[in-house]
């Protein structure tokens, strides 16, 4: 009987300690700085305009373009299939299913790269995955895809091949085959397999 009494006492006192201790909210989502610095330098999160153009032409469902500019700018011109999440609304609840998911690759873009890289840094810190940056933004999109520079002949065969690919892409994005923006916007569906709050899928059902 005595052993039982001692055991109960231990359990209750442990419970008391647990009850007294403040409840902490730990978040593992915060990366450590060194890790983030490495990622910035590795530049794996950059998607070149060529790569993106290719994905759009092939109708690759893996990519979801996200336009971070204001609504007016978005209405004026946006990349086909993109959805508009203005930077200030990045963490609004309505966009959470798009930003925090595991199904597709989000490609942030703005006119330049500042907004998109800021958005990337913030989502990265919150532990969201699958977010990428369109390198150089719309400005680079324009100079590489829409009005590609003619390579100087000394640049060799590779550059010329690139150029030809870009001319093809240009045709796709500006010519008769250009995707109408209005219809493209409604195209952007919610990701299928949305991950709920980054929780582990579990239970035993």
């Amino acid at each position: 009987m005595k052993a039982r009494f001692i055991l109960s006492l231990i359990l209750v006192s442990l419970g008391l300690v647990a009850a007294i201790l403040p409840q902490k909210k730990n978040s593992s989502i915060e990366l450590d700085a060194q890790q983030l610095l490495n990622e910035i330098q590795q530049e794996n999160h950059l998607i070149s305009t060529d790569e993106m153009a290719n994905a759009l032409i092939n109708n690759d469902p893996e990519y979801q373009l996200i336009d971070l500019r204001s609504e007016t700018e978005y209405k004026q011109y946006s990349l086909p299939g993109s959805i508009n999440i203005p930077f200030e609304k990045l963490f609004d609840a309505e966009w959470a299913p798009y930003i925090d998911q595991i199904a597709r690759k989000n490609v942030f873009y703005s006119n330049g790269t500042t907004l998109s890289s800021e958005a990337w840094m913030l989502t990265k810190q919150r532990g969201f995955k699958n977010n990428y940056i369109l390198q150089g933004g719309l400005n680079e999109w324009y100079t590489t895809i829409i009005e590609p520079e003619v390579p100087a002949s000394i640049n060799g065969e590779e550059a010329i091949n690139d150029y030809e690919a870009r001319l093809g892409a240009k045709q796709f994005f500006t010519g008769a085959g250009a995707v109408n923006n209005a219809s493209a916007n409604t195209d952007a569906k919610k990701p299928v397999a949305r991950k709920k709050k980054k929780m582990v899928a579990g239970g035993c059902s």
Binding site: A18, N26, S27, M199, A201, G203
Partner: peptide, 26 residues
């Protein structure tokens, strides 16, 4: 249940586990 519960409480207090990721039954 008590051992696991106490363990989780203390681990959470010591910053050893992120309870926001642990599965809570719906």
């Amino acid at each position: 249940a008590i051992v696991a519960m106490l363990g989780l409480l203390f681990m959470n207090y010591m910053g050893m586990i992120d309870m926001s990721i642990v599965y809570v039954n719906e």
